[in-house]
Design a protein around this nucleic acid. Structure first.
Length: 425
DNA sequence: TCTGGGGTCCTAGGACCC
DNA sequence: TCTGGGGTCCTAGGACCC
């Protein structure tokens, strides 16, 4: 009785158009139809998002503000309304959840839906796509593009082709015809480096890639990337819509240029460790591998990592491990004179995460660490973090702050943006 | 003129185990 | 007489994505 077509796997990819910029134009009608940039300004800073009117001039996210002004003199820079972004994106996700519970949110403004089962209730993928777009437009007021296909990869490409404010469904049986003429750069996993490598071999379209021998592609790009892209070019995508688990938690802080001192390194790491460990505790996770990144002037990054015997989730222990690793990275640097190398960024990330729903005693410190007098035990550290977490839950994040006053001002990015980025998980 | 912040996955060599 | 073979984990670096 069921149609054969109903048994095709069906995936939608829903992607809000120029999300931050569209929200600003929704909130302030005077901005509609005009080139705007969220974040940055004519003197510098980074553009977080550009409206389509600005994109038409070549402006895009990640671009320096001065460059955006150069390309588009009439551009308007606006400050972000980060709370609104979260609220409106959540409202859109609620529309998606009305269609199916099988929603995989991959960033604040983007999600996959497995609608294989929902077609019985709501009709064909095209009909479901139309329904979602209309509902998001009417209930939230934002433009959204949707791609539909049998696989995630193709659904995502279809939504990119649909932009702005469109719907493209790739009907079963037409996949290769759809893919072949498209540029390889549209494929998931092809960035500037891979695209250059492919172009150097005369491979410009997905069809070119599909016709190339997988062996040759693997030799060009490496085993995993080559095999993956060859398969994707033939519309072979094994990925299922699912809610993936978080594998690492991290935070970073850019610092202009800075000659590191024990105090400055310690206070920045304490701040970062507090963010990371606090989020881990909120998710009931602890982790065994601590990785730090140090970016030297000019723009050369190194990482150092250490895997502990037992997982940790306390701010102080994480700070101490990170501190060791950072000084290790700095002292590894070759330098012509006695001078301390300048650094421009510090980052901490914790991986090898495990669930941690009960109190676990942390092994204090790696043997190499010189224990300071008065250093708290694992239990005391855990208790300290618990009380800080509780106070913050009651009175807000700013009440207890590890951030030294010197770093409190002139931060590169609004604090709200950091919190938003955390929520993109 | 001056480059944000949060993630995932892959590679390659070495250590270590059976 | 001379050098197994597979698997896993760790570390450092890099490409890529939003």
């Amino acid at each position: 009785m069921a149609h054969a077509a109903a048994h095709h796997p069906a995936v939608l990819h829903a992607d809000l158009d120029a999300f931050y910029a569209s929200v600003e134009q929704l909130l302030d009608p005077a901005l509609r139809g005009r080139p705007i940039a969220v974040g940055g300004n004519e003197r510098g800073g980074v553009v977080l998002a550009a409206s389509y009117e600005a994109k038409a001039h070549g402006v895009h996210g990640g671009m320096a503000g001065w460059r955006a002004r150069q390309l588009c003199p009439s551009i308007t820079f606006v400050r972000g309304h980060f709370g609104e972004y979260q609220r409106l994106a959540d409202a859109v996700m609620a529309v998606l959840a009305d269609i199916t519970p099988a929603v995989e949110r991959i960033s604040i403004d983007e999600a996959f839906l497995d609608i294989t089962g929902a077609t019985h209730l709501f009709g064909t993928p095209r009909e479901i796509g139309r329904r979602i777009r209309a509902q998001v437009r009417h209930e939230v007021g934002l433009p959204i593009s949707i791609g539909g296909a049998r696989t995630k990869h193709l659904a995502k490409i279809a939504s990119q082709v649909a932009k702005p404010d469109g719907l493209v469904v790739v009907e079963p049986g037409t996949e290769q015809t759809f893919l072949d003429p498209l540029p390889v750069g549209l494929m998931w996993g092809v960035g500037p480096v891979t695209e250059r490598a492919l172009t150097s071999e005369g491979i410009r379209t997905i069809g070119d890639l599909a016709r190339a021998r997988p062996k040759d592609v693997e030799r060009l790009l490496g085993h995993a990337t080559g095999a993956k892209l060859s398969a994707l070019s033939h519309d072979e995508d094994p990925r299922r819509v699912s809610t993936g688990r978080v594998r690492s938690v991290g935070a970073q802080s850019a610092m202009g240029r800075n000659t590191p001192t024990s105090q400055s390194v310690r206070s920045v790491l304490n701040h970062l460790a507090d963010r990371v460990a606090g989020r881990m505790r909120a998710k009931h996770r602890a982790g065994r591998t601590v990785t730090v990144r140090v970016r030297f002037v000019p723009m050369r990054s190194v990482t150092r990592s250490l895997t502990l015997d037992a997982p940790i989730a306390t701010t102080l222990t994480l700070t101490e491990v990170a501190e060791q690793l950072v000084w290790q990275a700095i002292s590894d640097q070759e330098r012509p004179s006695e001078a301390m190398p300048e650094i421009s960024l510090l980052a901490i990330s914790v991986s090898n995460l495990v669930p941690q729903h009960v109190i676990q005693l942390e092994l204090p410190l790696p043997p190499a660490d010189p224990r300071r007098p008065g250093s708290a035990t694992g239990v005391a550290r855990w208790a300290l973090d618990q009380s800080v977490d509780a106070i913050r839950a009651k009175f807000g994040t700013d009440v207890v702050d590890y951030l030294p006053a010197a770093l409190g001002r002139r931060r590169g990015v609004p604090e709200e943006f950091r919190e938003l980025a955390e929520h993109e998980l």
